[in-house]
Amino acid sequence: MPPVEPSMDLSLWGLFLQAHLIVKIVMIGLVLASVWCWAIIVNKYALYARTRRNMDRFEKVFWSGQSLEELYRSLAPRPTTSMPALFVAAMREWKRSFEGGGRAVASLQMRIEKVLDVTIQREVERLERQLLVLATVGSAGPFIGLFGTVWGIMTSFQSIAASKNTSLAVVAPGIAEALFATALGLLAAIPATIFYNKFSAEVAKQATRLEGFADEFSAILSRQIDERAG
């Protein structure tokens, strides 16, 4: 550990360069975490906006009285997400059941519901993916920063002991560089926490919406099944 010189470079870069190796690693990790968090935040924000628009559009078409067959034919060729994915999965199961001459109708209702559940799960998982990173950074970021700070303060106390000098000039630079680690931790954690809360609420809202649609759609299909059976 280098002794603390009285004339130090007190810029942020200087503080970083003078920091202990552990503190440096903590700082770099926190900066990278912040970068990653913001990447997730931007992506998720776009994803949720897209999903919401997608659902709105699909619901409009779905309730417009268009034939379900036509709708299925227009949607099936392309991979779909969210509500269209639910619709396509259920319709596919429906069609398969009637392909063989309508013999597999008995438990069709159960199968359709299973398919819808699975699709909902998959969609929600897709929406939730990486939110855990935000949660982790939000909760662990301050601790990691604090760890860097404690380490930095330990080294600065060691340098006090080594130089046998308690003047502020000896103590201050070490503490400044140590606090820098906490600052970075908070810098990464605060947006992560805020956006984690916002996004998990958003995911819950969209999952509810998907479930509502699944229920309605399975009711429609159930009616059709009974009509055909009877």
Partner: peptide
């Protein structure tokens, strides 16, 4: 896109 934006902003 998000990663690019984030890296540039940081």
């Amino acid at each position: 896109g998000g990663m690019v934006f984030s890296v540039v902003a940081h």
